[in-house]
């Protein structure tokens, strides 16, 4: 399953679908890293609103993704974690430490725009 990745200015926005498999996550990670390099993007937003399960593998892959994207000079924000998912992650001890999270797409864009020299 392909996760759609949209380009908005210097940002990339990936909208995750439900029923995401482990392979889909790894493919997404690789695709985003590649595109950030290709487009010289400054920010990546991953919208997980539709994600019904965030388990240890998903959490790890997203953390790795953020690290790899940072190495390419861009920032990552994960948005749209549902309350039930946040609760579950906290119970499992998955904190997505070091990864920026925001409520939704709007907040994610606001965050990226804040310290983006291009936006001021």
């Amino acid at each position: 399953m392909q996760v759609p990745i949209l380009k908005q200015g210097t940002y990339l926005i990936a909208v995750v679908q439900p029923d995401l498999s482990d392979r889909d996550l790894v493919d997404l990670r690789d695709a985003l890293v590649e595109r950030v390099g290709r487009h010289r993007s400054t920010g990546v937003i991953i919208d997980v609103t539709a994600l019904d399960v965030m388990d240890s593998f998903a959490s790890l892959t997203l953390s790795n993704l953020a690290s790899m994207i940072r190495l390419r000079g861009a920032r990552t924000v994960i948005v749209g974690i549902q309350p039930e998912i946040a609760f579950t992650m906290a119970r499992l001890g998955l904190t997505l430490k070091g990864v920026t999270t925001a409520l939704d797409l709007e907040e994610g864009l606001a965050y990226l725009g804040q310290s983006d020299p291009r936006s001021s």
Binding site: P83, A86, M89, A90, E107
Partner: peptide
């Protein structure tokens, strides 16, 4: 503690 962590995941 769980509440604080989960809230952060929601950007708060």
């Amino acid at each position: 503690v769980l509440t604080v962590e989960a809230s952060r995941l929601l950007g708060a």
